[in-house]
């Protein structure tokens, strides 16, 4: 009921998000019309430092939204608020209509970790530093949450983990410990660990920023495949090429606000926003030699 209410007031200044039907996402149910993520009036401060101010954002099913912008603009914080690894102070975030992090009945009661688990098992996150568990092999990393969260038995979890590693092209590395894998391979294991859980939504926090340049491509390719399969993705990235080619929507953040939002074409080529122009200028200068 609250979800429907939210849909009615879907008047973000960003507006233009058309409901997409393409992509073959897991919808078709009545919930199929609810946006995957709605962010309304989101604000967050670290002490006196206001890192997010009045953010509005809608992510529809099967949509890929890239968050770009200079360092310190708040894009990673915004991403971390979506699965409540970071608590927000003002406004609200809803995933498939469900309020994130706070109690629906008494809105400022923060949910416990236990109460957040139901939401988090449907929202996967890929980190800049991979964050694999170093004492487990690639296979064990992927199988772990299947056993601990989904309650699968060990044999089934291992079989499924092996399939997922195959999907990211790492079946041969199943028994390797993370220390023996390259950064790109570690990040692909981290992605396999997430997709094994069949999330409805995947969050990527600068997934290629810690990688050597020659390893970036293999990770981006896996992400492209996921997007093509209809996965809903929110991606914080500095890879403008990926944003331009894969994203349905691009949000440009600056000083905690969304300064520009639209299709890649609208943001990259048609935006009159000087900060976007300046950011892209710097980006191009850095990437040419």
């Amino acid at each position: 009921m609250i979800a429907a209410d939210k849909n009615a007031t879907n008047t973000a200044p960003n507006g233009a998000s058309l409901p997409r039907t393409a992509g073959g996402g897991p919808n078709g149910s009545p919930a199929g019309t609810t946006p995957m993520v709605t962010v309304r009036g989101l604000g967050k401060s670290f002490g006196t430092n206001e890192v997010l101010r009045d953010i509005d954002l809608t992510v529809n099913r099967s949509e890929v939204v890239c968050l770009i912008g200079p360092s310190g603009s708040g894009k990673s914080t915004l991403l971390r608020c979506i699965n409540f690894l970071e608590a927000y102070d003002r406004g609200e975030i809803r995933i498939e209509g469900t309020l994130v992090g706070y109690s629906e009945d008494s809105p400022r009661r923060r949910l416990t970790n236990r109460e957040l688990r139901g939401l988090r098992r449907n929202v996967g996150m890929v980190f800049q530093q991979f964050n694999l568990w170093p004492h487990m092999t690639a296979l064990e990393n992927v199988a772990e949450a299947l056993v601990q969260v989904r309650g699968m038995n060990k044999a089934d979890a291992a079989a499924r983990a092996r399939q997922m590693l195959e999907r990211v092209g790492l079946a041969a590395k199943a028994d390797s410990y993370p220390a023996r894998l390259s950064g790109g391979q570690q990040q692909r294991v981290a992605i396999a660990r997430v997709i094994a859980m069949e999330p409805h939504l995947m969050l990527f926090d600068e997934p290629t920023s810690a990688l050597d340049p020659e390893l970036v491509g293999e990770v981006l390719q896996v992400m492209r495949d996921l997007a093509a399969d209809g996965m809903t993705m929110v991606v914080v990235t500095h890879e403008m090429g990926f944003a331009a080619n894969v994203a349905d929507k691009v949000a440009f953040l600056d000083h905690g606000r969304i300064a520009a939002f639209g299709t890649p074409r609208e943001v990259f080529h048609e935006s009159a926003e000087p900060r976007v122009q300046q950011f892209l200028q710097t980006y191009h200068e850095r990437n040419s030699f």
Binding site: R117, R120, R121, G124, F127, L132, W133
Partner: peptide, 27 residues
Amino acid sequence: VPKGQVEAALSLGMSYGAILRRVIVPA
């Protein structure tokens, strides 16, 4: 214990008990 290892476990929906046993204590 690297914070990221715990965050990864949290983001997958693991319980604190499971995180303690499977991630924190081994680290």
